[in-house]
Design a protein around this nucleic acid. Sequence first.
DNA 1: TAGAATGAAAC
DNA 2: GTTTCATTCTA
Length: 511
Amino acid sequence: MATGSSDALEHPNMVWEVKTNQMPNAVQKLLLLVDKRTSGMNESLELLKCNENLPSSPGYASCDEHMELDDLPELQAVQTDSTPPALFQLGADVSHQECSRPSWSQHTSNSNPENAYSCENGVNWLTELANIATSPQSPLMQCAFYNRSSPVHIIATSKSLHSYARPPPVSSNNDPNFSKNDVDETPVRHERANSESESGIFCMSSLSDDDDLGWCHSWPSTVWHCFLKGKITCFSGGKFFELCVCLQDYGSNGLKLISHEESISCGESVLKLTFDPGTVEDGLLTVECRLDHPFYVKNKGWSSFYPSLTVVQHGIPCCEMHLGDLCLPPGHPDAINFDDSGVFDTFKSYDFTPMDSSAVYVLSSMARQRRASLSCGGSNNQDAERSECSNKNCASPASSHLSSNPLYSKAGKSHSSGTASTVSATSPNKCKRPMNAFMLFAKKYRVEYTQMYPGKDNRAISVILGDRWKKMKNEERRMYTLEAKALAEEQKRLNPDCWKRKRTNSGSQQH
DNA sequence: TAGAATGAAAC
DNA sequence: GTTTCATTCTA
């Protein structure tokens, strides 16, 4: 039930509870607290809160801390062999219904002549779509539409989204009822035709015109986006979560991240972020969100504090987020022509197969294509392969002579020759082990601890990190454990030999 | 290039 | 039970 009224934009506070009939026990509360006190004091504080309460999540109901790790959603489980939920029950009077099956679920109903895409076509279609949508030449990427005076209408514009969140291009002559104006200007159109659904856009029914529930679409195929109350909402793995928390409400300059801290809320780690909109009248914006929440950052693209968790959970590859990052609302001019190569670089670590008919595979393929094209184009393009995302967690250290092999996975450090890393890199399908929980923790905090203890040797920092790790509570470790497990499972699936040990001379060498 | 931490998986 | 290797970076 969407308890938030349709006049939420006028109301200072708004609470949503979103349920799905696929997971009837899954309830997400979207709490929007707006406290604008601008009585001449230049003081205003806006708090956005997005909490998910899921049966499998630690924060659900009784805050059960005995969540099994096996409850983790699997990356590939959502899209390939399950028909997307036909009905997302949003409430008694708010729902949207799938008019027809999206293209990639056709194998569940071959008799439907409207299913225009085959399974492999689904993959190709995604790849093609991704290439088209994210290329600098794409009209979508070149769209300069940006209207900050009307948040609802801005957000309800497909062209205002970054490519990851945009619906697939719709042939306008397929359906006269779905005109450009429907997308650009009107918040919602009911009873859309099937042709729209073939494009991944779902019709909305039983909605009042005031509900501001816009189109839904599903790209990447693991992630379902829709517009709810002027926000981009993402449906992934049986969960709704809010994407790009209302950044469009805050000026054309974006929001600069000025502080972040993790805290435990009802047994679940959450991030508390503070943004500076850059304008005095807006004050600071404090946001509480999940650790894997993605933000679109200027010159970096999609970013989150836990990129690997974000991609596993939501299928969105991310750079690592840092203080000072400028988060942009979807459709911001600075977000439109960004080179996504940095995002693709994130996936150099993995080689996905066509069986992974997910956004991850698509992006992995795109990364491979990019590498291949760059290597064919000459060796001077090493730098071109790097995006503006200079973060080492984002840009792969793999040098171009290694990445010229499309099957090569990032292995070892960026040593150029003579090391074991190079040797291992020459063998195809060789990959690095995924980091365990402690490694993820250490990687995240090593820099911080190094600054905290200037002059300390890195080995001493390791000791401190280990000490800190041992003292951490299970709840604090949970996110790292989950992330490590997710990474390991994915790696195990893609590269089962990843943990193979080298044969040592003193070991079981046989002559 | 060793080493310092932890943990998962292979031996 | 032991060994390897994920990350990071200084000595």
